[in-house]
Amino acid sequence: MMKKMTIDDKLGLDIYNTDEHESHIDVDLECKDEAEIMKLVLACPAECYKYVDGQFSFSHLGCLECGTCRVLSHDKIVKSWNHPMGTIGVSFRQG
């Protein structure tokens, strides 16, 4: 087995210039549609969406800017999605 790493360990290797306050994704955290929530939880490669003990949460920190959540749930849970401002967000050195 390869060394076990958490998603936070992995994202910690990436370079970010994070805007701690301003999120480029506006998420409806009041959503109660569990099936819709689970799609985002399963699909987000950075685990930005979490659903633990019936509690739905989102953090844009660590976002890889792929746009998966926008395609899966635009106008539903993802109220708005934009690219982060210039220089903000992830920078791939390998890519």
Partner: peptide
Amino acid sequence: FHNHPMVEPYIKGGELVEYSGHL
């Protein structure tokens, strides 16, 4: 995938340097 018995031998001992995602 990276722990699959046919994949792991290729990358065993490798150090992860980046994790990325894209559509």
